[in-house]
């Protein structure tokens, strides 16, 4: 049994965030399938349980930091154990761990997702990477264009030299004609 989550999630203060969790198992989905979410605040050593789905029913924590703010938005029959955290706050920064059990297939590592709460959503790493790649490609295209322009100019000079050669040949012919006249 393999549990999958995003590795990191960014969200704004006061907004809602969906933490995805799904699993792959060689067994059919069992009626006894269960999902458990743990939360470990930044700087803390121990994790606490904040959500549990078992026996076909969801049990969000009604005590602690996420009291009345958790909602089950998954679909166990589709192996989805996602939860929704409403009205985020800075104190919600931390690591969330999702563990799934599909008896008799219960092996494997739980999966963790790191939640970061911001006033403003920061520029994504993907955007930065894309910009860098774009700039590099632009520079490459520019270099190639300059190269071909230089080649064009050099080719023009060669053409003019060949024209001057033709001129010399013409002079030679004129000389021979004069001799024949004498």
């Amino acid at each position: 049994l393999v549990v999958n989550t995003d590795s990191e999630k960014h969200a704004l203060v006061g907004s809602d965030v969906r933490l995805s969790c799904s699993f792959f198992s060689w067994q059919w989905t069992s009626p006894e399938v269960s999902f458990t979410w743990h939360y470990r605040p930044d700087g803390a050593k121990d994790a606490i349980s904040i959500f549990h789905y078992g026996g076909g029913e969801a049990y969000p924590a009604n005590k602690g930091p996420f009291q009345n703010r958790l909602e089950f938005v998954g679909n166990p029959s589709r192996r989805d154990g996602s939860i929704l955290i409403k009205n985020l706050d800075f104190g919600d920064n931390g690591t969330f761990t999702c563990d799934a059990k599909n008896p008799p297939d219960i092996g494997g590592h739980p999966s963790t997702i790191r939640l970061l709460v911001f006033e403003k959503v920061p520029v994504q790493a993907g955007v930065i990477t894309g910009s860098i790649i774009g700039v590099v490609l632009g520079l490459l295209i520019l270099v190639v264009a300059i190269y071909y322009l230089m080649r064009f100019l050099v080719a023009r000079r060669v053409f003019s030299l060949s024209m001057s050669k033709h001129g010399k040949k013409g002079k030679g012919k004129e000389g021979s004609q004069q001799k024949q006249r004498i």
Binding site: T36, D46, A47, I48, S49, I50, F51, H52, G54, G55, E57, Y59, A61, N62, K63, G64
Partner: peptide, 12 residues
């Protein structure tokens, strides 16, 4: 770690 729904809040 023990879960006794609806008692699920706690530490392992």
């Amino acid at each position: 770690d023990v879960k006794n729904p609806p008692d699920i809040t706690g530490q392992s």
